[in-house]
């Protein structure tokens, strides 16, 4: 049943995926041929397509909420864990495709692209995953009891971001002048340590997301 669910999830999101790919190709061509003073076409391409990615993600979230997609899946002969995995499989495939676009663009613009930059781009994808699961937890807690847990979580995240911003630590959502800003949480000087740290956070947040998702009242979705 899992494969059927994945197939359904891809069919359900096909249009948004199509729009996302078309816009990626458009920006790919635009930033490849543009003779602009921009000295960081890779950053510009990543910035533009990141906006496309997040806007499409918001559109999908609204569509899924309108259709009560997960309530629908709950009524089908599939488990909550299968539904959770299918949803994330689709998001991660899409994110993976986005990272591939970034890498392809970077290699097209500059064939001598360094391996270090490849890691930077891949780690930006990781920071996207981190951010998505962070938001997914906040949304999924809306159908979890008791209700105050959602507000406690959102409040906690806001305070954490505020403290990190105050300390001048990048949370990987934006691109700054500093090298480390490419990495989610420029907490450590060593990029590998940062990546390992974020990987650990993503795994923990994914486990939390599974726990919340499989114990939610899905009719509230």
């Amino acid at each position: 049943m899992y494969s059927q669910l994945v197939k359904t999830e891809f069919e359900g999101n096909r249009f948004v995926l199509f729009v996302s790919i078309v816009l990626n190709i458009f920006f790919f061509i635009l930033f490849s041929i543009e003779d602009s003073p921009d000295d960081n076409p890779v950053g510009s391409f990543m910035g533009a397509t990141s906006i496309v990615f997040y806007v499409c993600l918001i559109v999908l979230a609204i569509q899924g909420s309108d259709e009560k997609r997960y309530q629908l899946y709950t009524l089908l002969p599939v488990t909550a864990t299968e539904s959770f995995l299918a949803g994330w499989f689709w998001v991660l495939c899409w994110l993976g495709l986005q990272v591939c676009f970034w890498l392809l663009f970077a290699f097209t613009i500059d064939p001598s692209f360094e391996s270090r930059s490849v890691i930077e781009i891949a780690s930006t994808g990781l920071s996207f995953w981190f951010l998505i699961v962070l938001i997914a937890n906040a949304i999924d807690l809306g159908s979890f009891r008791p209700a105050y847990v959602q507000w406690a979580y959102i409040g906690g995240i806001v305070i954490l971001i505020g403290v990190l911003a105050r300390l001048g630590i990048s949370i990987g959502i934006y691109f700054g002048d500093e090298e480390n800003d490419f990495f989610p949480f420029g907490l450590f000087a060593d990029p590998t340590a940062n990546i390992f740290f974020v990987c650990t956070l993503v795994v923990l947040l994914m486990i939390a997301n599974w726990y919340i998702f499989t114990r939610s009242d899905h009719y509230l979705r």
Binding site: A80, S216, H218, Y219
Partner: peptide
């Protein structure tokens, strides 16, 4: 019914 179908736990 919701409890039976699993839309509420």
């Amino acid at each position: 019914f919701r409890s039976l179908m699993g839309t509420v736990r």
